[in-house]
Amino acid sequence: MENMHIIFWLLKDLSWCMIWKVLGIAMIAPTLIIAIIIAWRTRDIKAELAHNLAIAFWISANSYWMISEFFHIDTIHIWNGFEGRHLAIIPFAIGALILAFYYLIQKPRESKQEAAMATL
């Protein structure tokens, strides 16, 4: 499944590069669905879950950005210097926050627990 995910992702980004709107948009669903399935399957392993959720949000941001360019909403002024493409910052930031939480809070907790278990 992970290998198929990469194929869909590459087709989506290649389509974006080549401005193949129909194929690019069609590749969003399988790419994102497989990313979500992979995250679900790794939900019991905190490190894997965090990284796979970040990937799903990255694909979401990337897909929105692609669509905004395809339909020329990427340069539409929204507010205070922000344009349509800048809305991709939201899912990018969510992915980054998930990873920050994992590395700054969850992983140190796990390390402390492992150290405590080792001393028993």
Results as ranks from 00 to 15, higher is better:
Thr75His: 10
Ala29Thr: 15
Phe82Asn: 01
Tyr103His: 10
Gly24Glu: 03
Ile90Met: 12
His51Thr: 06
Ala93Gln: 06
Ile33Met: 11
Leu53Gln: 13
Arg109Leu: 08
Ala115Cys: 04
Met117Asn: 00
Leu53Gly: 10
Ser15Pro: 07
Phe57Ile: 14
Ile98Arg: 02
Tyr102Arg: 09
Asn52Asp: 03
Ala56Tyr: 04
Ala35Lys: 05
Ala88Arg: 02
Ser63Met: 06
Leu32Ile: 13
Ala100Glu: 01
Trp16Asn: 11
His77Gly: 05
Gly24Trp: 03
Ile6Asp: 11
Glu114Val: 00
Leu49Cys: 13
Asp74Thr: 02
Ala39Arg: 05
Ala47Leu: 09
Ile33Val: 13
Ala115Phe: 00
Ala29Gly: 12
His86Phe: 03
Ala56Asn: 08
Ala39Trp: 09
Ile55Lys: 07
Trp65Ser: 10
Ala35Tyr: 07
Ile98Gln: 05
Val22Asp: 07
Ile38Thr: 12
Ile73Met: 05
Ile67Tyr: 11
Asp74Asn: 03
Leu104Val: 12
Ile6Pro: 08
Lys12Phe: 04
Asn80Ile: 01
Lys21Ile: 05
Phe70Ala: 07
Leu104Ser: 04
Ser68Lys: 01
Arg85Gly: 04
Pro108Gln: 06
Ser60Asp: 12
Met18Pro: 05
Leu23Val: 14
His77Lys: 12
Asn62Gln: 08
Leu104His: 06
Ser60Glu: 11
Asn80His: 06
Arg85Ile: 08
Phe82Pro: 00
Leu32Asp: 04
Ser15Glu: 03
Ser68Gly: 01
Cys17Thr: 09
Glu69Val: 03
Asn3Ile: 12
Ile45Ala: 09
Phe82Lys: 01
Ala54Trp: 08
